[in-house]
Design a protein around this nucleic acid. Structure first.
Lengths: 307, 307
DNA sequence: TTGAAAGCGATACCAT
DNA sequence: ATGGTATCGCTTTCAA
């Protein structure tokens, strides 16, 4: 039988070679469909995410695809377009298509029902369902500590969406560091953008955002108000989106190691599929702060007490 | 005979209903694998693109997924990561996985071998293999005409990659409009970024780029050189990336109708799969110019002759 | 070690 | 209109 050419089974080297050559001659293409039917494995993983057009996800999707390909899987994408019902529907569609497992980035504030499908959840350590994710709180701490080290003592924290657990964790990390040593306030862009000029006039010298897109907006507002970055105001973003190095000044940012996250997620699902021990219960991947031109030492360095 | 519930075949309404109810009871899930084996159709489309992390593609991938889902297909992604060999390999992997057809955005300067697989090529009208795409030259014309209408007569065209046919077509469109009526020069960022301050000093009042990312960079350079946008310099980008509305001033840009492109591409592949007449031989989708805050009337409006 | 044959679960055709 | 059954192409088990 020609399947012995697939490596396993007991077969003579000679026979194997003969079969292999003949297969090449005829241009033999094993049918995935038939294999899937017989083995009950499609060799396909689903990747569910809230919104591919959000600049955060493409790199992750790309990494998942790379990791999956390396592990011998194909990747079926399912974009839930920010809609929770669509997320449920997407998972169901993937199941119907017979995926062997899924990698999912849950819609903010959501606990998707996976129902006995091997799955890896990429979210945030504070989510009990989390399989693997960046240490968002630690990332927030790094960003905050960087501003502290540069002498900033009056800082604006700017989040994009209160409902996002990832963003809340980042901000919790920031607040944890700033709390004892610096004045700080938190605002959410869903409540409207705060007036940067006013804040700077009131003494703010640093802005921590939960996204490069928000940081870019702050940069622009500062520019229009005649505030110099980084001289008068330091800004740090998150996720190292492509725009971070395209904008002037280049943006300091805290990046996720999406490659590692994707790798671990795929490995985990793969283990689940094969009923192996999943050594992975809430793996945490460190984030990396990259200081670029949008941050500098605070102009009026306060060496004294926190206010 | 449960398949008669799938709609076709001759069956009594009563029987159909009975089967349907029983199917629900048992929680019947048709096996895609078995169906695929029998019908020779996987119900899956492949989507091959050069680089998902390029901000241009996510929206397109998203649109393709939406269009495919609507047409009853799943989408298997294959990112060729800017590598031509990887592109070939990716297509081959998709074929092995038994996709019914593919939608492909070819790597710049490449004519991928599809080999008897139903396919839609999304590229540019100047590519003879093109199935559907934006009218990039017309987009370039729109951008150029907008600056002309605003009184600009000395314009810098800034491309990102000479090897990209899409970018060349956009620039050809720009040059076609500017040629007779304005002074203009073309530069490529692969040769290094031109010094915006020098150019403005030399009389340039407008910059046309082939990408929002490049436009963002120009905006930043101008800012650092103390050049006011749009007062001293107008800038227009391409593709309406998320950053376009996040930056200040917001970026004027020429957008693709990715939804329509994806829709047509999927429809075309679907027709090919069913051996229907493909009415689509080089469909062209118009682009849309959106004027935002990065463009304004030229300060020194030259009403005279082109130079 | 090799050959033969039984199924995986749908679909479609053919008798009834 | 309905029930029965051969078949898609591969994997796996069993016999030789």
């Amino acid at each position: 039988m020609s399947n012995a050419l697939s490596g396993k089974g007991r077969i003579s080297a000679e026979m194997a070679e003969r079969v292999r050559r003949r297969a090449d001659e005829v241009g033999f293409r094993p049918s995935q469909a038939a294999r899937a039917l017989k083995t009950g494995r499609s060799g396909i993983l689903g990747f569910v995410m809230p919104d591919l057009s959000n600049p955060l996800f493409p790199k992750l999707a790309q990494s998942v695809e790379i990791a999956a390909t390396k592990a011998g899987y194909g990747v079926l994408i399912a974009d839930s377009r920010g809609d929770v019902d669509e997320q449920t529907a997407a998972i169901e569609r993937l199941r119907q298509r017979g995926v062997d497992g899924i990698v999912i980035v849950p819609h903010r504030g959501t606990r998707p029902k996976i129902q006995s499908l091997p799955a890896a959840v990429i979210h945030t350590p504070s989510d009990p369902l989390n399989t693997v994710s960046s240490d968002h709180a630690e990332g927030g701490r790094q960003a905050a500590q960087a501003l502290i080290d540069l002498g900033h003592r009056d800082i604006l924290i700017l989040g994009g969406d209160r409902a996002s657990e990832v963003q809340r964790d980042r901000i919790d990390g920031m607040v944890g560091v700033l709390g004892p040593v610096a004045r700080h306030r938190t605002a959410w862009t869903t409540d409207g953008f705060p007036d940067i000029a006013d804040l700077v006039a009131a003494g703010v010298t640093g802005v921590l955002t939960t996204s490069d897109l928000i940081a870019l907006r702050v940069l622009g507002d500062a520019y229009q108000a005649g505030i110099k970055v980084p001289d008068d105001l330091s800004i740090i973003g998150f996720d190292d989106m492509p725009l971070a190095t395209a904008v002037r000044p280049t943006l300091s940012t805290v990046a996720q190691d999406v490659g590692q996250i994707a790798e671990k997620a795929v490995t985990h699902v793969h283990s689940l599929i094969n009923n192996e021990q999943s050594n992975a219960g809430g793996m945490v991947v460190p984030m990396t702060l990259t200081l670029r031109a949008s941050t500098a030492a605070a102009r009026h360095h306060q060496t004294g007490e926190p206010s």
